[in-house]
Computed example of a mutant assay.
Amino acid sequence: MLFGDLHFHTEISFDAGLIGTSLNVHDAFRVARGEKIRSNTGQPVQLIRSLDFLAVTEHAEMIGLATAIRRSDPRLLLDDWGGRIHALFNGSQQDRMAAFGEIIEIGTVQGIDPTAGLGLDGDLWVDLVETIDSDNEPGVFTSLAGFEWTFTPKGDMSNGLMFPETKFDGSPLTAEYAAKRIRWEPIHEMTQIKGDEETHPLLSPDDEFADFERWDVANLSGPAAKTPEMLQYEYARSALKLGLKIGREIGVNPDKFGMYGTTDSHTALPTTREDNCFGKYQHTEPSPDSHGMDVIPAEDPALRIITAQESASGLTAVWARENTRREVFGALTRKEAYATTGSRLRVRVPCAIPTAPTSTGSRS
């Protein structure tokens, strides 16, 4: 078994880079391979056990914005919106938070790229892939290039939209649609910083672990509580049951997925153990004051998420014959993978041993 992380951000992602992450892609791979480096807040950090593979998945939205602000890119400064945002990020803490909130509102909730046409991405993707390739060492360590594209209509995140019984526009599912879905979404991220997405206490009242490190809050459009009718369409166990139901009705199961775990770290530090957790954002790295800091602020205490609620999770385990891109990616596509909350649990599957047929004799 090989263990690694498939959802991970460095200073290139707009949210990570704009809230203080300064470590780059190469730094991330150094840590993943077991080297000791300095964290974003200047602390020594090293994994207790190195990873076997790591995928860097920067946000596709507004890629290049954080880099442009940090470098005072002329293309950004000459744009009215870009110049104003740059000034805010170089102002007070209050100004920076206001700018970050505006970017989230425009880019994520409204789904508009305010940097479109500025060419800030340039050769960034090519450079990123080349850097990732340089850290790939077949047989020893696998580096993977990816990206995160976030579909959040009106900032709703999931809110019952992840595993629907209809298409997004409300029309009925078809066998063709279901087949495309399971082809392009063969595995599901079941655990990460926000806790487990396996099940919910209301869905599994007899499961004592159903409430494990769960953020039951929608946050991109503003903190809001989940409602019970959403839940069966958000969690993996109920989705697997819904998929069987849909499969009987239309002939194709759209939710016959495998599962994997990640950190969703925004620090370029792939730490996954509770005894070596470095937080998932620059401002939640270890410090005397970080325990009760806001991750998601809210006036209602029931909707507020603090540092102590950040899960150290998680990891993806894959069954592979060797540590290469071909084997790791192949295992994922075949769903020969599983999620853990950071512990390197090894699944053992007993194989049936064929036996010679026994003679039953004959009757005369």
Rank of each mutant, 00 (worst) to 15 (best):
G4E: 04
S265Q: 06
G122Y: 00
A87E: 14
I106P: 01
T142S: 14
A66E: 08
M259T: 14
R181F: 15
G17P: 08
R70H: 15
A32R: 05
T174E: 10
R237I: 05
D275I: 12
T227Q: 15
E61K: 02
I246D: 07
E299H: 09
L54F: 11
R273H: 14
G330R: 03
Y233H: 13
L220H: 07
N90I: 09
S134Q: 09
N276A: 05
G330Y: 01
F163D: 01
D79T: 10
G222Y: 03
E213I: 03
V217M: 03
P74D: 03
E327S: 12
E11H: 09
P357R: 10
V347M: 13
S50W: 04
D5G: 03
E197I: 04
L332N: 05
G82E: 04
A99Q: 06
D113H: 02
S362E: 14
A317Y: 06
R326I: 08
V252L: 11
I306F: 00
L23P: 01
R363Y: 12
E208H: 07
V140N: 08
V45S: 00
P223G: 10
A68E: 11
A116G: 06
T41P: 01
I246Q: 04
L202E: 14
W184F: 10
G101V: 01
G91V: 02
E176G: 01
T131I: 14
P301R: 07
R70E: 14
S134H: 04
G42T: 13
W81C: 01
A68F: 01
A116M: 08
P205I: 13
C351L: 13
K226Q: 11
G342L: 04
P254C: 09
Y177G: 09
K280Q: 13
T115G: 04
S313L: 08
I353D: 09
A178F: 12
R334H: 03
G247Q: 11
H188G: 02
I63L: 15
S92G: 00
L161M: 11
A98K: 09
P270V: 11
A145F: 12
L144D: 03
V45A: 08
A60W: 11
I353L: 12
L144Q: 04
A331D: 07
A98V: 08
N136F: 03
S343I: 06
G64M: 09
H291M: 09
F53N: 05
L161T: 14
H59M: 00
L315M: 07
R75G: 06
H9D: 15
F278L: 11
P205G: 14
Y233G: 02
T108E: 04
G361D: 11
I37N: 00
I63N: 01
V140D: 05
K180G: 14
R96E: 13
L76T: 04
T358N: 09
S39T: 14
A352R: 15
T199E: 08
I132V: 15
P186W: 04
I19H: 01
A317M: 03
N159A: 15
L88G: 05
G258C: 05
Y260F: 15
